[in-house]
Amino acid sequence: MIITKTILVVDDNPDVITSLKTGLEDATRVYRILGAENGQKCLEMLKDNIIPDIILLDIMMPQMSGWEVFDRIKENPSWNTIPVIFLTARTDRIAKNAGSFLGEDYIEKPFEIVDLKNRIEKVFHNKASKKALVDK
């Protein structure tokens, strides 16, 4: 199997990054998982031209929240096409709604790895069809 997609996981809990590495990378062997333990690191990686195919973004992080990181990404023309799926442990509706409306999708922690994989694939699929449409 060839690794085809790069996934950047931004979460202040390193265990989440580790588990996703194991769950997505090892299990499927089609994803390469990159991790950033906070918003700052994420933006630095992007600035270093490490452009992932998708970002899994945690909302509640110290210093810089997921919303702020999302804004920075969308502000930048070279980054704003990167799809974002919010990962959230928050139960309040504001987070849920904002997550689903702003980003491509959102998924509530704790999630099933299969569920996450389906959502990621759906985003890729949608992006591909859009691209195909634009190319035509």
């Binding site: 588990s19 442990a89 922690k109 704790p110 790895i113």
Partner: peptide, 13 residues
């Protein structure tokens, strides 16, 4: 909720 769900995430995966 947040504090309970966060540690459950890696466990669940």
């Amino acid at each position: 909720g947040h504090d309970l769900k966060t540690p459950l995430t890696p466990l669940n995966i």
